[in-house]
Simulated scan of single mutants.
Amino acid sequence: MSADRVVQLSWEPRQVAVDDRAALSYPGIAVIRRRHGEVVDRTWLPVGEEPTFADDEALIAALHAAWRWSSHAA
C-alpha cells in the first residue's frame, strides 16, 4: 500500500428532498479515495435494512477496486 493513496470508508446517509416540506434519508457507505490528502474519488452505495446479494456484491466490488487502487504507486 502506498502512503500517498488512502481508502476511507464512511457511513453517510443522503437526504433527498421530496417537496418544500419533506425529505427522505437513505443510509449508505461512502468509499473515498484520497491522494496526498485530497479526495480524488467518492463512491456512495446504499445500505438497506435488508441488503440483497446484489448489494453485498456491489460493496465488495467497490472495496476491491479502491484497495487495488491504493496498492499502486502514485
Rank of each mutant, 00 (worst) to 15 (best):
D20L: 14
D55H: 08
A54Y: 03
H36T: 06
A54S: 13
H36Y: 08
W44K: 03
E57G: 04
D56K: 07
V31M: 02
S71E: 14
A58F: 10
D56R: 12
L59H: 07
R68D: 11
H72L: 14
I32H: 00
E50F: 10
A66L: 11
P46Q: 08
L24W: 11
V47E: 05
R33A: 06
R42P: 00
Q8V: 12
T52W: 04
A73Y: 14
A58R: 15
A54H: 04
Q8C: 06
A17L: 08
G28A: 08
D55A: 11
H72M: 13
W67L: 15
T43P: 03
D20V: 12
D55K: 02
W11L: 14
D19I: 04
F53Q: 14
P46M: 04
M1I: 07
D20K: 15
R34K: 13
A54M: 04
A30N: 02
A74R: 13
W69S: 05
V7C: 06
S71G: 10
L9P: 02
P27L: 09
H72T: 13
P27R: 10
M1P: 09
Q8S: 11
S10T: 03
A58Q: 15
P46Y: 02
S10C: 05
F53M: 12
R68H: 10
I32W: 02
T43W: 06
A30D: 05
P51C: 02
M1V: 06
E49P: 01
A66T: 08
H36N: 12
H36Q: 10
W11I: 15
V39H: 06
E57A: 13
Y26V: 14
S2N: 15
H64C: 09
G37M: 04
H36D: 10
F53S: 12
W11R: 13
D41T: 07
L24Y: 11
D55V: 04
V40Q: 00
E38F: 08
A30K: 00
A74K: 11
G48V: 04
W44T: 01
T52V: 03
P51E: 01
A73R: 15
I29G: 01
R68E: 12
V47N: 03
V39C: 08
E50L: 12
H36P: 00
L9R: 09
A65R: 06
L24D: 12
I29L: 15
P13T: 11
S70W: 03
A17R: 08
D55W: 05
R21L: 13
R21H: 13
A74M: 09
A22C: 10
A62N: 00
L24C: 07
A23T: 04
L45T: 03
S70V: 07
R5Q: 03
E57S: 10
A3F: 10
D56P: 01
L24H: 11
R68K: 08
R5F: 03
A22S: 13
V7K: 07
R21M: 13
L9H: 02
R21W: 13
D19V: 03
W69T: 06
L9V: 05
H72A: 14
R33L: 11
R34Y: 06
V47W: 04
I32M: 04
I60S: 07
